[in-house]
Every structure is written in C-alpha cells, then in structure tokens.
Amino acid sequence: MQDYQLILEAYNRSGGDVSVFKQSNMAHLVVHKNKVIGMNSVKGLVLIPKEKEYGIEATIVVEKGVRIENMVHLCFGILPKEGIQEIYMKVRVEDGGGIKLLAHCVFPNAVKIIHRMQADIDIGNNSYYEYNEVHFHGEEGGVEVIPKAKIKMGKNSSLVTNFSLLKGRVGYFDLDYESEIRDNSTLEMTAKIYGYGDDRIKIREVGHLLGKGSKGVIKSRVAVRDNAISEIINELNATAPEAKGHVDCIEIIQGNAQAKAIPIVNVTNEFAKVTHEAAIGRVDKKQVETLMARGLEEEEAIDIVVRGMLK
C-alpha cells in the first residue's frame, strides 16, 4: 500500500527507525488520517483502535503486572497538504504494569493540517508510563497541533513525558498536559521546541503533587527566531508533606521573536518544597564568540548553541 510506504518514509526522515514495524516482538500502531494502516500487539498489551470520521479512538491497556519489554511505536500522520486528524487515546496501566511509548507525528507536506490529540491516562500503583512524542512537520508552517493529556497516577509509580518538535516549522502549537501524582510517585515532563517564521507556541504543563513524598520536575527548552512567539506555563502544586518539585524553563530568542515564561509554584504544605528557574534571553555572546574563534560563522555558532540547549 502506497500510503504505508510514504508514511514510513516520513517517519524515517523524522528520525524514526522503520525496522521496528517488522518485528513481531514489538507492538506498533500506524495511522494515516483516520485509517489504521499497520498494527501489531504483544502479550499483556491490549490495543484496540476504532476508526472515526476524523481520526481514531484507541484503547491501550497494559495488563496487571505486565511490563512491556520493548518500546511501543506509534505513528500518526497525514500525507496530503490538507486534512484533520483527531486522536483520542484512552490508556490504562494496571497495577505493577509498565509501558514505554514512542509516537511520531508526521505531516511532511503540511499546508493546512489540524492534529488534535486527547489522552486520558490512568496509571496504577507500582507501575510506570513513559510517553515520547516527536513531531516532524514540513517547511510551510500550516500545521495546528493541539495535544492535551489528563494523567492520573497511583502510588509508587513513575511518569515520564518527552515532547519534541525540532524538525520543520511548528505552525500553531498548543500543548496542555495536566497530571495528578500520588504517594511516592514521580513525574518528569520535558518539552523541546524550535519555532521560526510566524510560529506560535503555547505550552502548559501542570503537575499536582498530591501524595506524600511525590516528586515532580517540569522542564522546557524553547528556541524562537524570526517572528515566532512562545508562551510557556510550567506549574507545580505541592499539597502533600515531603512533596518535592522543580520547574526549569530556558528560552532563547533571536531576531524579532518573543518569549514569555510563566513558572507557577504553589506550596500549601509546610513540609513540601518546590523550586523554579526560568531564563529567557538572546544567545549568549561568549558562547557564540568561543565557537567563532574556532572558525565557525556566526550563524553556525548560534545553531550549535541552540541545538545543544534543545538536546
């Protein structure tokens, strides 16, 4: 099927390894617009996609005590210039279970594309959930990406999310992840984005440290140039004793770009602690001059500094 080949080609260009779709011991799901064009599941993982008018509804369940050994690969994409894709994901990790997902969202020819993702994620006790999302857009900038996630996590569990959009134009981007963390569980949310042209970036990542001894780190790395605008809200609320958190946001601006960082830190328990750091600025002159003194042009030097920060 031609769509399958083309999606995999875009997947490959976005940095994905296509060989994973051929291995029977690795679960995957490939969706073009609202059609499931490739799928494989493994023992202990329930994967049920339902095709809808504008996308799919996927139920993902990791059964009790099952730790899925290999990374589960998801690929969502639209090949034509225009289109809408809505992904609704309902994820449940039962007690003692664990899963790591890597999702590639590819819109290589995007001129006018809307990609919405709504995830309801329920993580049990003593379990883990890692979700990595990598985007690959074309150079036109006509993509609207709106990922939302509501995450609830039990005790002694860990949650890691990594979002990155470093290849191609961002377009309009509005991410909103909110999580509730119970006793002795940990949260790590990271977002890395490089915007240019007239890209618009909005990120809101929130962690509610509700359980005793819960921990959270929210990290954002954003670079914007040209006329791009970014606004980052990183919020940690600690209401339980011994809850600990840190918010860390760095934004680099070039040209006429604008950046706003809003760290929100609420601590209502006297035995909880949350720290934050936020820095917005131009590329550090000394860093750039250091690289130029080894023979790089200014543009190349800036690129190395910015890419390093986003790594």
């Binding site: 000394k286 860093q287 001059e289 003194a293 080894r294 790089l296 200014e298 190395i304 920060m309 790594k311």
Partner: peptide, 24 residues
C-alpha cells in the same frame, strides 16, 4: 575583520573563563 575570518586565518583564543555549553 570579524572573529570567524581571523580564526580561519589561524588565530584562536583560549578564554580565561571558558563558556559552558549545555548539550554539547
């Protein structure tokens, strides 16, 4: 001449307090 040109001609500098680079 700008730094890059001078560096390409063979001049370089080891800084008294060298810069730090995240991710490099």
């Amino acid at each position: 001449l700008p730094i890059s040109k001078r560096a390409k001609m063979g001049i370089t500098l080891a800084w008294q307090e060298p810069a730090r680079f995240e991710g490099l």
